[in-house]
């Protein structure tokens, strides 16, 4: 018995304790979302009754454009992650496969510039978007495409590095052979590099998606009208107004809002560790 504990039992003990820590907030949210009274106080008692009132309220209250927030977030995060992967992958291809003047300097510059988080430039971003709005109202301040453009400004940087690390580990012999056969560099990029690099691209896409869903500050200064806002901004406003009274509705909204990220994560989880470690440490 003691030998079993020393060998395996303690592992289960640690695992179970960690599970309690990891899961109790989630159990609490699920319980709060089906709580019929829907206040924070009432939610303190777990599973005190079950009703779908909060979910119904979430979708029927006219002052609460939850469906809009949800679709806005999906569109913005989806577009940002797809475009980010494209921009970062093509830059990584250039750095990995071509030798050109300013390559070293360019990579150092990227490394440096990406350390300036956009949050720090919030004021400048606001002023710039206001100026762009004066010329191109469709992509300026207050538009979702404007927000996506701002996010794309951070697309290169660390993503390019991780992807480049991965591309470097794809044998050069493959592209050389294709070139001997007459393939152009464009064709090598699309048919060989992008396909073999899929694991790291999936990771970057996933992380970008989750980060974009999470992003609050820039989204809150660029999207001002409630119908255009994202989940982060909308749900924060909802409970910062009345924390206790709106708790049940918030919990329901939070659960639904978390579903896409959790599903994507489950789907791509096996790539994450290998992608991150291989990209950053190489080999």
């Amino acid at each position: 018995m003691r030998a079993w504990f020393a060998n395996t039992g303690w592992r289960h003990l640690v695992g179970l304790l960690a599970l309690v820590f990891a899961l109790f907030p989630l159990v609490f949210v699920i319980s709060a979302s089906v709580n019929p009274r829907g206040t924070l106080t009432a939610s303190a008692t777990l599973f005190d009754g079950a009703s779908l009132d909060n979910y119904v309220k979430l979708f029927t209250t006219s002052t609460l454009p939850y469906t809009r927030w949800f679709t806005n977030t999906m569109i913005i995060a989806g577009a940002t992650s797809v475009l980010t992967v494209l921009l970062a992958a093509s830059a990584a291809y250039a750095f990995s496969r071509f030798r050109f003047r300013g390559r070293r300097l360019g990579m150092l510059g990227l490394l440096l510039v990406q350390m300036f988080p956009q949050v720090l430039g919030a004021v400048a971003i606001f002023l710039l978007m206001a100026r762009i709005k004066g010329v191109f109202p469709d992509v300026g301040l207050g538009t979702q495409w404007g927000l996506v453009m701002v996010y794309l400004g951070g697309a290169m940087g660390v993503n390019t590095f991780l992807i480049k690390g991965f591309f470097d580990s794809i044998p050069h012999e493959l592209d050389d052979a294709a070139k001997v056969d007459g393939a152009t560099h464009t064709r090598v990029f699309f048919t060989i590099i992008l396909r073999l690099g899929a694991p790291v691209l999936a990771v970057i896409g996933l992380l970008t998606f989750i980060n974009t869903v999470n992003e609050f500050l820039v989204a809150s200064i660029i999207l001002q009208s409630p119908a255009k806002q994202t989940l982060a901004v909308g749900l924060y406003t909802l409970i910062s107004e009345r924390l206790s009274a709106n708790w049940g509705v918030f919990a329901a909204g939070a659960l639904i809002g978390a579903i896409p990220s959790v599903l994507l994560f489950r789907f791509l989880q096996r790539y994450i560790v290998s992608g991150l470690l291989r990209g950053s440490v190489k080999g």
Binding site: L87, A88, S90, A91, Y93, A94, F95, F98, F100, R103, G106, L110, V113, Q114, F116, Q118, G121, A124, I125, L127, L128, M149, V150, L152, G153, G154, A155, M156, G157, T160, T186, F189
Partner: peptide, 22 residues
Amino acid sequence: AGKYLLPGLLFLLVFQVYIVFH
């Protein structure tokens, strides 16, 4: 190489480099 760098670079210039300098 420029063919692959330009699109990302343009966004970087406007929304990151310009922001840093501003």
